[in-house]
């Protein structure tokens, strides 16, 4: 049995401990804000925080998440009040929106580590997160807005 915390709530899982955290969140906990994009850690759509670290949940087995704290987009803030979520709305970042949970979670981890990121910091932190609609320039704007750095 695997025990972990998801968005502050204690959970127990008795199935295959090899199951990736992604599918546990989506199929079993019905937390579908975390998206399936590639299954190989190549696109970032499934990004969550595990013990505060941005993590590709599609490559993270439940076994390896045992005893840890998981934060998903649903738990990032009450009612979408995180500065990044606010900035995402201000700049109307999403087009289809599918990748944006992962983008926001990745950006949230970036700002925790580097509250005033440079363009280079943003490139380095965000290049694992693909947006096929091509919203990158607004993602960059929104991160800078949330961080209070000049665009």
């Amino acid at each position: 049995m695997v025990q972990l915390k998801v968005n502050g709530v204690a959970k127990q899982f008795e199935g295959d401990p090899e199951m990736p955290l992604l599918w546990y969140l989506r199929d079993l906990l019905e937390l579908t804000g975390t998206k399936f994009g590639c299954g190989q850690g190549l696109c970032g759509a499934c990004t969550v925080h595990v013990n505060g670290v941005p993590t590709r949940s599609c490559l993270t087995s439940l076994q390896s998440a045992a005893g840890k704290t998981v934060l998903t987009i649903e738990g990032l803030s009450a009612n979408g009040t995180h500065p990044l979520q606010q900035a995402w709305k201000q700049f109307a970042v999403p087009q289809c929106g599918y990748c944006q949970s992962g983008q926001i979670m990745q950006a949230a981890a970036l700002l925790k580590e580097k509250p005033k990121p440079s363009d280079r910091d943003i490139d380095e932190a965000m290049q694992g997160n693909i947006c096929r609609c091509g919203t990158y320039q607004r993602i960059r704007q929104a991160i800078k807005q949330a961080a209070g750095v000049k665009a």
Binding site: R26, E30, L31, T32, G33, T34, K35, F36, T72, I73, E74, L76, S77, N79, G80, Q85, W88, K89, A92, P94, G97, Y98, Q100, S101, I104
Partner: peptide, 21 residues
């Protein structure tokens, strides 16, 4: 006007085909 789905999307609540159940 702002997209009707914007508020949902930034909190992970937009329902895509992959999310339907």
């Amino acid at each position: 006007v702002p997209s009707t789905d914007l508020d949902d999307i930034v909190v992970g609540k937009g329902t895509f085909g992959m999310d339907a159940r």
